[in-house]
Amino acid sequence: MYYTTFHIGNCIGRVKENMYSDQMSSAEAQAALATIEKAESETIASLRPPLWLITMISLLCGIFTFSFAVTEGENHWALGAWLSGIAVVLLVLFWMYSARLLGVRAPVLPPSGSGKIFLALQALFYAFVLFVGRGATLWGRPETRLEGAFPIADLPLAPYIAAVIVSLSVAYLTYKYPTNEWVQQDASK
């Protein structure tokens, strides 16, 4: 049971908090849940980077994926991968800096367990797309593809498909989950 302490002059008093959990109706619980959902949605909206920044980050992630897939030795795509990777890091740092000025400190790792799992799943997904994209690009060329081995057909579009998957998923996840916290949201928003 909780009490709230109050001070009036030199007097200290305590009042019992409203303990109506036992009498709480499902309608009241629903209203409380609506308040929570609204507060979380408002917080997510206030933390969301501007659309131009989301677009730039997602495009650069797509360029990085494409460059990584088609890089061979020290060709120009290796430079493209480096430059796009550095640009993404700089843009994310800019976003974190501007959020901090507005009163929000975005942690590198989400504090909750569900947030960490969500981030780990994202990392696994991107690693999978990156390496499958590169593998399919290298082994899916007519001159390198082995008969009967993976992939079973020529895959000239593999780096493009990987880049589009990464770009779209980065844009969606940055828009819906800017803090990497798994927060239930209204699907219509």
Binding site: I36, A39, E40, V104, P107
Partner: peptide, 17 residues
């Protein structure tokens, strides 16, 4: 409840915000 909901969806928030 509002404070906890806002803090749970983010890392650290400034008092003023």
């Amino acid at each position: 409840l509002h404070i906890c909901a806002m803090l749970s969806a983010s890392g650290e928030l400034e008092f003023k915000l």
